[in-house]
Design a protein around this nucleic acid. Sequence first.
DNA 1: CTCTGTGAAGATCTTCACAGCT
DNA 2: AGCTGTGAAGATCTTCACAGAG
Lengths: 266, 266
Amino acid sequence: MATGRTHRPATRSRGIPEATVARLPLYLRALTALSERSVPTVSSEELAAAAGVNSAKLRKDFSYLGSYGTRGVGYDVEYLVYQISRELGLTQDWPIVMVGIGNLGAALANYGGFASRGFRVAALIDADKSLVGKPVAGIPVQHIDDLEKIVEDNGVSIGVIATPAGAAQQVCDRLVAAGVTSILNFAPTVLSVPEGVDVRKVDLSIELQILAFHEQRKAGEEGGGDVEGVLPAAAAVRSPGAAEGAGATSSGRKGPDGDLPAVMPA
Amino acid sequence: MATGRTHRPATRSRGIPEATVARLPLYLRALTALSERSVPTVSSEELAAAAGVNSAKLRKDFSYLGSYGTRGVGYDVEYLVYQISRELGLTQDWPIVMVGIGNLGAALANYGGFASRGFRVAALIDADKSLVGKPVAGIPVQHIDDLEKIVEDNGVSIGVIATPAGAAQQVCDRLVAAGVTSILNFAPTVLSVPEGVDVRKVDLSIELQILAFHEQRKAGEEGGGDVEGVLPAAAAVRSPGAAEGAGATSSGRKGPDGDLPAVMPA
DNA sequence: CTCTGTGAAGATCTTCACAGCT
DNA sequence: AGCTGTGAAGATCTTCACAGAG
């Protein structure tokens, strides 16, 4: 998980397992697709296949939400879409601010998925004055000097950081001070936040490194000479479904030459 | 997992837990930073703090790699950087191809983290002919018709998909057929791949939804019991912060495949 | 009979706490 | 002393397999 300053303490209240929460969006997407095709019901088997998980896991996940299925039949698509949306809090409007409008920030701003899922880009913020006023994805970029005001005026509680690594912590501190309590961090840095603030991190460098690890394992190795225990013939490979991540991984590292802002500064 | 068996993740001395592998890049980044400051050694406590994990976990993780520390002292930074790099397979060159050069693809291509170690963008590929030949991040975009040739000529085994959701599976199939065995998918779709191929997914929409879930939790139970949901009639809209919006969401219609392209179509 | 919901078993991952090297 | 390395306990997550609703 990518929760920054973890929160283990809290009372084990009526909670849905974190692993399950991480999969709900996946189910929701599959269900939405079915809904658009006017499919009325699905079995756990079918839905699981569409979401890329196994059916037992899916049924177990749903069991934490309640008994929304019908034995011998399956699940009502519309009803389930609604229940999951509600559970995820998507039945309400979430204004978000995005800080750092470089290549990545622009790509994120253009990401259609926001609007359709209860998220609304309330503001785009950057430190580069030459960008201010310029519209990106139809939204004019505002200067970072106004960050606090923007957050407060819009009642923003979720912020997205797509600045270079060096600016991330500072931006994070300001967002938190202004009232943001959930942050999605694209900068390759570990953010430290006070308790109560959630941080999820997305870093492509880490993802690539993990792939490289497995790739290395697949390709026969040369000098290494470890192998020994590997089964001949078919090497054990991770099941594709397992690659599904709770998302959030993190990191990236500095390079000899350039640092690696998650994206270009401006 | 689509069809078959779940593989027994072969338990061998060389088998590093997946959770550990996912953290190695984090440690590597922290170590690289220390290395650049010419710090000779670090204790598990210090390094753990820099990486954002607890020290017991870090020591346990390192124990899978071997005994690279010195009791009473700590770990030699340079040595550890090397060992982790080697373990992750970063001591070799990994040519990668990126398919789908829209906003996101361009952002990724410009991502400095690639070049700085192990990864090399061998080619940028897009289906849009008007983009072909145009340099992005200094690399000329090539047409997707040449995908197979490009992959083969460059010995590419890792591909990055940043196309719209609708094109992802097809691109994936072609990459795999051409020899790619590891894929980093940014398109909001579940890719199905043959056994032996690894897929990792990065999905912004999912990350935001997970944050929304936790955010909703924090918002407190100001209202009263949520529970018991009725069918999607009037969605309850509750604003998290001060101001508020009124967009109900749930199952709004939107793009073609019900989902959002990770970025502008290529 | 079909397919959900779930107790229980199994597999992983995390944390503790301390033996043992330096 | 200080700090690593690790068995063992604990917490989570996954999978099995079947009772039982429809």
